[in-house]
Nucleic acid binder design. Sequence first.
RNA 1: GCGGGCGUAGCUCAAUGGUAGAGCCCCAGCCUUCCAAGCUGGCCGUGAGGGUUCGAUUCCCUUCGCCCGCUCCA
Length: 550
Amino acid sequence: MPSAVSMDKIVALCKRRGFIFQSSEIYGGLNGFWDYGPLGVELKRNVKEAWWRDMITNHDEFSTPPGAPSAFSMVGLDCSLIMHPQVWKCSGHYDLFHDMMSDCRETKRRFRFDQIRGRWVHVEKDARGIHRYFIMTDADTPEAGLEDTVVKACKFFDVRRKDAEAALTWQSPGLVGITPKDNLAHVVTPGATQPGTMTEPREFNLMFKTTIGALGGAEDAAFLRPETAQGMFVNFKNVLDTQRVRVPFGIAQMGKSFRNEITPRNFTFRSREFEQMEMEFFCHPDQSRAWYQYWRDRRYQWYLSHGLGSDRLRLRDHAADELSHYSVGTADVEYAFPFCEPGEFGELEGVAHRGDFDLRSHMEGKLVRDASGCLAVETGADGKPRHPGSGKDLVYFDDQSRERYVPHVIEPAAGADRATLAFLCESYHEDAQPDEKGALQPRVVLKLHPRLSPIKVAVLPLVKKDGMPELGLELYRNFKRAGIPSYFDQQAAIGKRYRRQDEIGTPWCITVDGQSLQDQTVTLRDRDSLEQVRMPVNRVIDEIAARLRG
RNA sequence: GCGGGCGUAGCUCAAUGGUAGAGCCCCAGCCUUCCAAGCUGGCCGUGAGGGUUCGAUUCCCUUCGCCCGCUCCA
C-alpha cells in the first residue's frame, strides 16, 4: 500500500510526464480548472471507455447478471450542456444552489445563513444597552445546542452558571434560525467576544450563469448544467417512445458539468468544470430496493476490478439525516486519497435511490417534503406551484401487466476526473530495483490496470544498430495496425527506457536484441514483476491482445 | 471568501539592489547487447502587472496560482 505517498509527488509526475496541467498555465493558471495532457487524455478516455463499455456497449439485455433482479436494457444519451432554465428550477438546483452565506468578522468563520441555529435571550443588566441577543451554537445536535447556548451565554455575559437561570431569560424553548430581517447587530457568533460581528448574508451562485443569444439580457439567462442527470430525466419519454425498451432499463450519459465550488482544492478532486459518468435506472417501485442494492454493489466492484485496493476503497451507506431531500437511500463509493486525513475518504461515486422525485418534478413542478414527510409540489404565496413542471405525462404504462406507474430511479453518478485521479494515486509506487551493477536504484512506477494504461506496449531495440531498430519499428507498426496503443523508443540506454515506461504505467515492454535477428524472437518484460519471457515475434501481438482481454 | 505560508529552468534546489548557477530531465552526436552508465555539445528560468531606484529576481503595492486552517461539499 502506498501509505506515505504525498500528493505533491503525484502532481509533479502528472506535470512532468504530461498527464495533467493547470488550465491556462502560461497566464498564471485558473483556480479549479485543469487540462489533460497527451498521456492524461488517454488515461481518462480509457476510464470513460471502460465505464461506457461495461454499462452500455457490452451489456446483454437478454441475460440476468449475477445479483440483478431480472434482465434489463441499457441505452446511452448525449445531451446539451445548456438546458431550459425551468429544468433547474424543477430539479431543485436553482433554489438549492443559491446559498446565502455570512461571515463572522471576528472569528473569521463562515456560516450558511439558512443553517444558523441558536436562541434569543433577554438580559436585564446589559452594559451595551441591547438587552436582546441571539446566541449562536455550532453544536451538532439540537440537545447539545440547547446546552451549548447556555454555556456560551454564561461566558459571553460573564455570568456564573448557578446564576444563569436568574440572569438570562430565554425567548424560545428550542433552537431557532435567523432571517435577514433580524438585527444582525444582536447576533453573537460562536467564539465571538462582541455582538454584531456577522456580515450581511451574501449570495453564492453555485451554478454557472450564461446568456443565450448575442443580445441576451437578464431574461435570457441560462445555466451550464451542474449535473448530467437532468438530461436523462427530461428525455425519459423520448427514449421510451423510440427505443423499444421497457422498464426496467437504464440511460447512461458521460459529459462535462459545472459547479462554482467555493473552495476548489486537492488537485482535480474538486474542480469547477468536471466530467461525470451518470446512469439513471428506471424500475418498478416495488423492485427499486433490490435494484438499488444491485447497482450499489456492482459499482463498488467496478472500482475494485480496475485496481483500487480494498483497503483504500469503501462503500458507505449514508445515515438517514445525511440523505438529500428526495433520496430514500444513498451509498457512496469512497477512496482514501493521499490528501485525506487518516480515516477520511473522498467521494468517487454516489449511488442514490431517488424514488419518483425526478420524473414527478418534471411533470408537476418542484417538489418539497410537506409536514407529513410526503413529497408535494411547492407552492408560492399565490397558491400556485413555485416552479411549474412541464405538464407532460411521464407515467409509464406496462402493457403486459396493464399497470400505470411513475418509475422509481436508481442513480449511480460517478466522477470521471475523480476516478482518474484515484487510479493515478493508487497506482503510484516508488520502489527500488537493481541497476546493472546490482545496486538498488529508486524507481517510480504507475501500476495501472492494463485496461487503463495510456500506452499498452513499448517496443525497444536493445541497441541502435545491426538492424534492431528496423525490426522494432516494423513490430511497432504492426501493433498500431492491430489497434493497440504502442510506443517506439530507441533513445538512451535500455534501463532508462524501461524506467520511462514504468513511470507512465506501460504494462509491457518488448525488446528487440541480437538474438531477435537470428531466430525472430523478442523478449516481453512485465512492468510489475520485471520478469522477461522470450517468444516468437510473430506471436507477440496476439499475446498482448490476449493479456489485454484479461 | 477570510487568516497564515509560499512562487527562481520541465523537476529538485542555490545566489544577489549591479551579466541568475548546479544536479537531474530533455534534445543532438559518439559510445553502448537487458533495467536511470560514460563523453561532447545544446535547449530552457526569477508567475503577471505596476511602483521606488541610475539599475529590482531581491524593497513596496496589486493581481494570479499553490499549500495549510476555517468555510463549503446537491
